[in-house]
């Protein structure tokens, strides 16, 4: 069963009662929340995700709930809870859905050390994976959404889960997170996209999430072989440029982008070295012309 097959009332019942259990690639999570924005966000953005039964193992049990006391009513807030304990500072209740997304990212990066985890978008064509590792503001998610719009399979817009031998990337398809002006850019570039509510005034500015295509969610068990590492950089109005990047530079940038490189010691070094050895590495500058950018990536994929 998938989320879209749950009636709205049943979705609310699970979220406010026993918990909604979802499969997210290699992990499963239980979610509870009384917030209507969380229910509607899940209904829209996780529509194609598999719903698990009460007896299925959940890796993480999370909740997004209001605090006790007056903050339920006056300038209401939302708390993220993990195993029943509050994590992070409270956010305004209007940000409950982004808080859930950020909380889930935290759960995965803090606990899934069976993988080397890199802060990177990951896409796939013909079994070969494209990694876009980058710090915030580099246009990674915009580029990722544009490629997904033109048929690339989404493995993740945030987290590359690399097997420790460096030869496979494991998909964890979840909504793509867009910020500020890129929300309108993608809405124009991909008119069919299912985009959730725009939540203004978060720590990251305005944020909105895009539903991953059904195909990407259904193929979450198909891992991919790393083939390209591309460091994107968005520069307003700049001419597009794709330049070969020395492998040692690509390696160091991946180290900088990894969440748990230090956890893996020698094995982490070997995994990244294998990944970089097997990939063509580039630096990619673009000025916002997404069609031109997607065409450049399509040329790799067919080469």
């Amino acid at each position: 069963m998938i989320v879209a097959e749950l009636a709205a009332a049943e979705l609310r019942r699970r979220l406010t009662g026993p918990g909604l259990r979802l499969r997210l690639g290699p992990v499963a999570t239980e979610i509870r929340s009384p917030f209507a924005v969380v229910a509607s966000g899940l209904a829209l953005l996780y529509a194609k995700h598999e719903v698990l039964g009460a007896g299925d193992f959940a890796d993480f049990r999370v909740a997004v709930e209001p605090p006790f006391g007056v903050r339920r009513f006056v300038a209401p807030q939302a708390l993220f809870k993990f195993d029943g304990n509050t994590r992070f500072r409270p956010l305004p209740a209007a940000q409950a859905f982004p808080l859930l997304e950020w909380g889930l990212n935290w759960c995965i990066t803090m606990h899934c050390h069976q993988y080397l985890i890199i802060h990177s978008a990951v896409l796939e064509r013909n079994g070969r994976a494209l990694l876009l590792p980058a710090p915030p503001g580099s246009g990674k998610s915009t580029l990722c959404a544009a490629l997904v719009a033109r048929g690339w399979r989404l493995l993740s817009d945030e987290l590359a889960l690399v097997e420790l031998d460096g030869t496979r990337v494991v998909p964890i398809p979840r909504p793509i997170s867009l910020k500020n002006r890129s929300i309108d850019t993608i809405a124009r570039f991909w008119p069919d996209a299912a985009i959730g509510d725009v939540v203004p005034d978060t720590l990251k500015g305005s944020v909105a999430h895009v539903r991953p295509p059904a195909d990407s969610v259904q193929r979450a068990r198909e891992s991919a072989v790393p083939a390209w590492v591309v460091l994107p950089r968005y520069e307003n109005g700049a001419a597009m440029e794709l330049a070969a990047l020395p492998k040692c530079d690509a390696f160091m940038r991946l180290v900088d982008s990894a969440f748990n490189y230090s956890v893996h010691g020698r094995a982490g070094f070997d995994a990244l070295a294998a990944l970089v050895d097997g990939s063509d590495c580039y630096a990619f500058t673009y000025g916002g012309a997404l069609d031109e950018a997607v065409a450049a990536f399509d040329r790799f994929a067919s080469s």
Binding site: F57, D59, H111, C112, H113, Q114
Partner: peptide
């Protein structure tokens, strides 16, 4: 599934 957590904690 639970084994993955034990392995991760070991790392």
């Amino acid at each position: 599934a639970p084994r993955a957590h034990l392995i991760a904690a070991g790392h």
